[in-house]
Design a protein around this nucleic acid. Structure first.
Length: 479
RNA sequence: GGCCCUAUCGUCUAGUGGUUAGGACAUGGCCUUCUCAAGGCCAGAACAUGAGUUCGAUUCUCAUUAGGGCUACCA
């Protein structure tokens, strides 16, 4: 790869998802590493939609994928000119036919039922299931068979071994005799992954194929295909998988798998990127909280882990909270509004104050709702909650009255956290902090757990604070 | 079943032919404190097993075990 750089050849990577649903979190990691590798070296990152399986196609998923990549900041260089395999059917067909003419591939007319029967028999006989090559030497001409009645298979070498170097796995070896004569063109005229990806990677000028681990075993087929076409073989890097906590494939039953599920749960793209980058990669200095720029600068494929990594949502949560803390209320508010709507936020100025004070209690953007309740005093509270430990209600009332009287001397614009502490702490210190501050905080929040009374008063202001304290005092009198 | 890949605390990982095997998340404790967070400090916690090479292996080799991937007219 250094030679390529030396001769001025640009690195080109690509992300090639299938539009079979929402962009999976594992797919994002693949895209991310491809993006980082290319951009880190001033190369290009391209997007290609692998929509050759018409049965699994899910409407709207292409738009979803593009939107997700935009949201994460993994913008492909061909954003305005994305390659769709379904629009290139003639090209694949032409290449497949060329291969037949050159004797590298052949027309196969075996029917599906027969092949399935063979497979079952082979499995029962404990032999590796493999196409038995009925049509391999029949030399059937394309013009002799009607469209739809045949497939095209590539002629794999019958013996020998193939060895190649994976940028992550290093040397990998396979035995040709175990490899199948893979179908490259289906009877519906669509190519299979193997043909389409090799043709496209070549035509797009892809220099480094960075893809998921599951493709490692079919890489020999791809290398053979490159050889048949006489094309330059790109570098390969097979990324380790992301697993669920039970070490199985990450799926719906483990929780969210789609990017937008995470978005809707209140995760920030920065946190998702940072977290995913650390799943299988680490900076030299072992730095963990890294922004996109830092990751981009330091990324290299040779520090990528070989083994699979387990997706630990707790670490993502922590990371998300770190990114929330870094942001100002002004930055957070539009994000929350966009995600959960205006009603979720309520009064904007109030929300801003709440965010500045309370963001350290938020793990996700959606936590704002619970946070806000501490300031809203939504719902009635039990009168006994006003009691501090063994202290009496009467004493709580007495302390509340004293606080209220003292608070009255502050003017509206002086009603901030610093001033509040200055005038209230002497009372708390003389009467007992718990005895004073606990009932005060309950009177203000109506909750057992909440931010401090100073923070709440600072947010809600003098009038509202005195009103709430007054309610608590009356509540005790009625008792 | 066959082939391929992988293997350091519960998790993500650093690291080395000789280290008190390091960090982060999580867990527990303490500090702070009106509660809950946040923050600070501390603790427990790992080289899968067995051979071999070696003066010495967590590190190199082999086997075993475990996990994963592939084995489609899916990608």
């Amino acid at each position: 790869m250094f030679l390529d750089l030396f001769f001025g050849k640009k690195i080109i990577t690509r992300f090639a998802p299938s539009p079979t649903g929402e962009l999976h979190i594992g797919g994002v990691r693949t895209a991310l590493f491809g993006f980082l590798f290319a951009k880190n070296q001033g190369g290009k990152f391209l997007l290609r939609i692998e929509d050759t399986d018409r049965e699994r196609f899910v409407d709207g998923s292409v738009e979803h994928i593009i939107e997700a990549l935009d949201w994460l900041g993994l913008i492909p260089d061909n954003r305005r000119n994305i390659m769709f395999q379904s629009k290139r059917l003639d090209i694949y067909k032409k290449y497949a036919f060329d291969l037949v003419k050159a004797g590298h591939a052949y027309v196969c007319v075996c029917d599906k039922e027969k092949l399935e029967y063979d497979r079952q028999r082979q499995i029962e006989e404990k032999k590796p299931p493999k196409y038995e090559g009925h049509c391999r030497n029949k030399n059937i001409k394309i013009g002799d068979i009607e469209d739809g009645d045949f497939v095209i298979r590539m002629k794999m070498p019958l013996s020998g071994k193939i060895k190649f170097n994976d940028l992550i796995r290093e040397d990998v070896e396979f035995d040709f005799s175990l490899l199948d004569d893979q179908i490259i063109l289906k009877s519906d005229g669509y190519p299979t992954y193997h043909l389409a990806s090799v043709v496209d990677d070549h035509e797009m000028g892809v220099t480094h194929v960075i893809r998921a681990d599951e493709w490692l075993a079919s890489t020999p087929k791809h290398i053979v295909l490159y050889g048949m076409f006489g094309w330059k073989i790109p570098f390969f890097a097979h990324l380790p998988m992301i697993l669920a906590p039970d070490k199985s494939k990450l799926s719906k039953r483990h929780g969210a798998t789609g990017v937008f599920e995470y978005k809707n749960l209140g995760y920030l793209p920065e946190a998702i990127i940072n977290f995913l980058a650390l799943l299988g990669w680490h900076s030299k200095e072992d730095k963990e909280i890294m922004n996109f720029k830092e990751i981009l600068k330091e990324f290299s494929l040779n520090r990528v882990q070989k083994g699979a990594a387990i997706f630990d949502i707790k670490k993502l949560n922590w990371m998300n909270s770190q990114y929330i803390k870094e942001k100002s209320g002004n930055e957070l508010l539009p994000l929350i509004e966009k995600l959960h709507g205006k009603e979720f936020i309520g009064n904007k100025n109030l929300a801003l104050k709440i965010l500045d004070i309370g963001k350290m209690r938020m793990e996700k953007l959606s936590d704002f709702k619970i946070l806000k309740e501490s300031f809203d005093m939504a719902g009635d509270y039990d009168i006994n909650l006003l009691k501090w430990k063994k202290d009496s209600l009467e004493n709580a009332q007495k302390n509340l009255k004293q606080c209220a009287e003292t608070l009255k001397i502050l003017l509206n614009h002086e009603f901030n956290q610093a001033n509040l502490e200055k005038i209230l702490m002497p009372i708390a210190d003389s009467q007992g902090r718990g005895e004073v501050l606990w009932p005060l905080r309950v009177a203000l929040s109506g909750k057992e757990k909440s931010p401090s009374p100073f923070e709440i008063m600072h947010v809600i202001g003098k009038e509202e604070a005195l009103c709430r304290i007054g309610i608590a005092i009356k509540k005790i009198s009625r008792e």
